[in-house]
Design a protein around this nucleic acid. Structure first.
Lengths: 159, 159
DNA sequence: CCAATTTACTTGACGCGTCATGTATTGTCG
DNA sequence: CGACAATACATGACGCGTCAAGTAAATTGG
């Protein structure tokens, strides 16, 4: 049952092993996601946007020319509204996004991706694909599929 | 090969499926880690510290009474020094950590966990264990072990 | 039909992560 | 030995995430 010192244990250089496999999993998950985030940030930042800004642009591209109200963007990222407001502020300042108060419901603000935003995404699509493939390359197709299912199961269990 | 719409696809509500399993894996990984981080934050914050502050305290407890220099803490988290300096600033302000310039090498600052910090950790140990177990509960022992190995493999591949 | 509630945001404050830059101390090598 | 590089940090600036509180518009209930 007890395995050789895992990679996480080596990294943390703690003599004491994890007190449980669950804890080891939790730490491994957070650390791996951190490294991934950094790798993806490295792809996107040279093009003048952050990873979160990239995510918003992708969501808006997916939404089409109708655009989306702010809260809807927040919902699709798992994020809270205040962060999104400011995120879109910066995207607008860069001319990648346009905002316009909705006419039917004047509380809503519809955010649309601008042509410049689409251009930027077009340039980033391939690079992000490559980065994702590269990062996941240690897992073969079968392992990757199982891995994704496991992650799905973990998220699904959150009450 | 193509599966039914996965959980991530549902969550993002994007009609277009992921352009590749790698991309799906990347998104699933980041989103899952985000939710985990939030869950753990929920455990720790009622006790007056943040998740990162908790991590530092754990590292310092693991280091024993000798303490650690700032950069060594940064190394054990995967983080850069500037963040750690301020992190420890706040822990010190709360009286959970003490700092003292080293005498052998006067550039170094040794950080030690204070008795109050140890007390706090003692109160949190069980709660964090429970949270980890709870979060990982969808995976049985075998799946969890495989899951951890997969994560280890992903991190190990980073150049 | 209007007061109370709800919804969709926005703003302020604070902790965190990151880069660039600055400072003190130590190591090095010519 | 002394200039110069390297090391260990600290600080400033900026983007992000989160909570609490505020504003404006729509909805609802009496």
């Amino acid at each position: 049952m007890s395995r050789v010192r895992s990679a996480v244990q080596e990294e943390i250089r703690q003599s004491r092993p994890f007190s449980s496999p669950s804890e080891e999993g939790v730490v491994a998950l957070v650390r791996t996601a951190d490294l991934l985030r950094r790798a993806l940030t490295g792809v996107v930042e040279p093009h003048g946007i952050t990873l979160q800004q990239y995510n918003v642009l992708r969501i808006l591209r997916g939404a089409g020319p109708e655009g989306l109200p702010t809260l809807e963007i927040a919902g699709r990222m798992i994020e809270h509204a205040p962060g999104v407001t400011r995120l879109v502020d910066r995207l607008q300042a860069k001319g990648l996004v346009r905002r316009q108060r909705s006419t039917e419901d004047r509380r809503e603000i519809r955010c649309r991706i601008a042509a410049e935003g689409l251009d930027l995404l077009a340039r980033l699509d391939g690079l992000m694909q490559d980065a994702a493939r590269e990062f996941m390359s240690p897992l073969d197709a079968e392992a990757l599929d199982r891995f994704i299912r496991d992650l799905d199961a973990l998220r699904a269990a959150i009450t």
